[in-house]
Amino acid sequence: MSILHTVNKTPFERNSLESCLKYASPGAAVLLIEDGVYAALVGSSAESLVKSGLGKVSVYVLGPDLKARGFREDRLIEGIQVVDYAGFVDLTTEHDKVQAWL
């Protein structure tokens, strides 16, 4: 059973992303939304966490949330895919369920 995980908190404020990556099964999808998008940026102290996650799951980031916070796609860690709202909907339909890490 394939799960789409959503993370909406920064990795500096909560351990949501860390727990998500720890418990997600290989091949699952993780979508970073709202304040969760900060984890997708290069050069932060969470970069190694995200990079190790990329070896296990697919990582997506919601473009409009990234843009709202002032960052362009060239600041993203390599391997992270950008989706828009329609892409978010596609991801939910492609997976059996959505699990939110608040």
Partner: peptide, 16 residues
């Protein structure tokens, strides 16, 4: 902490 993100330039919220 995360407060530094408030001052990041180029914010564009039209999409949200």
């Amino acid at each position: 902490d995360d407060g530094v993100y408030q001052l990041v330039k180029g914010q564009d919220t039209t999409g949200i």
